[in-house]
Design a protein around this nucleic acid. Structure first.
Lengths: 195, 195
DNA sequence: TCTTTACCATACTCTGGCGTATGGAATGAG
DNA sequence: CTCATTCCATACGCCAGAGTATGGTAAAGA
């Protein structure tokens, strides 16, 4: 009952990955600035001594955490959007995806708040680029010309980013509310032309 | 030639307003976190001693600076949008306005990056609320039903916020470029229905 | 001229957060 | 059993940036 129940948690020893994971949780909850070595250590139930055994410094932790998140987001994008053949449905799926994958989503929202950070800015660029490419491709498949598809992809992604911002300001309807569904329906109808 | 040439600048004495103004410039350039007492003092050509004569602490400066900016933005909105009678033209003007009033605009973009700050968050709420009301009213005048107008206003403003985010990531076309004009035309055509 | 008031300089203190140094405790290899 | 490796605790040093204490100067009244 008090022995190894879950995979490898319980009371064994910490790995670098554990630190990275908890750092991401902290980023999602309070932003990247909240990732302080000592407070994070308290959160893990240990002290700084442990941290500096796994990482040379705070920056290394951030780097690894962000890299971990980026990989996760990439495979995530492939899995949830790459499979859908109908481009219209793929775009709708992109919007709906906002609700699920809460941690990944919250981390991204927090990172947008730190677009000046030297480690974060290039990451945001890569991620946005990747996502927009997908959207642009979908609009291309629908039948829009190259430039039109580019513009429409940027507009679509801007809408998403803006929604995140409003969410941070508590001015966007809750993801699980009826108002959110109504708004989503409107957005999709406006940005994704029928037939 | 070395005497009081401009209104009251030159080499006289500093006022609280001067500090607030410079703080806003710093916010626009490097974000609110860059507003440190000593660095700001260096920028003004004086030392901390001066600052703490005008303000009780750093927070007071931020409060006054943000208040000053909010007032400026409010009158700005009234002046540039309140006068235009045609709702469609008013909306187009809102988008175009992005380019002008550089300082006000940059400050807002920087503040969006600090939506977690206790002083900034309510400010952002008020400003976004005010602006969206204008947009919503315009869509109402065009003829949309109440809920539709609300959704469309939120979508419109989200697009604006998202564009700011992309700008911060250097992924939005420059305001003075041809690509920007083309994109703007596309956005307006998509969000503001003709007739 | 003498003093007050407004404005600023200098030199501190104090706190938070990073990084270091070093000394255990546990665990597996031999 | 011994000992090396792994993981962590404790106790420091250090620096940036906020806030304080106090003294100086210039200009404006009295």
């Amino acid at each position: 009952m008090t022995q190894p129940v879950s995979k490898k948690k319980e009371r064994s020893t910490l790995s670098a990955g554990d630190w990275e994971q908890q750092a991401l949780v902290l980023i999602a909850e309070q932003g990247i600035r909240a990732v302080a070595v000592e407070s994070l250590a308290r959160r893990m139930g240990v002290t700084k001594g442990s941290f500096y055994w796994h990482f040379p410094n705070r920056d290394a932790l951030l780097e690894q955490s962000l890299l971990r998140w980026e990989k996760h987001d990439e495979t995530n994008l492939q899995a949830s959007l790459g499979a859908i053949s109908d481009p219209r449905e793929r775009l709708r799926s992109f919007f709906r995806r906002t609700g699920r994958e809460k941690l990944t989503h919250d981390v991204y929202s927090s990172l947008c708040t730190a677009s000046d950070h030297p480690k974060v800015e290039p990451l945001l660029e890569r991620v946005a680029e990747r996502r927009m490419k997908h959207i642009e491709a979908a609009f291309g498949e629908i039948g829009f010309a190259a430039e039109e598809a580019l513009h429409r992809a940027r507009l679509t992604y801007s809408t998403y980013l803006g929604f995140l911002q409003l969410q941070r300001q508590h001015q966007a309807p809750n993801l699980s509310s009826e108002e959110f569904e109504a708004y989503m329906t409107h957005v999709i109808a406006t940005l994704i032309p029928e037939k």
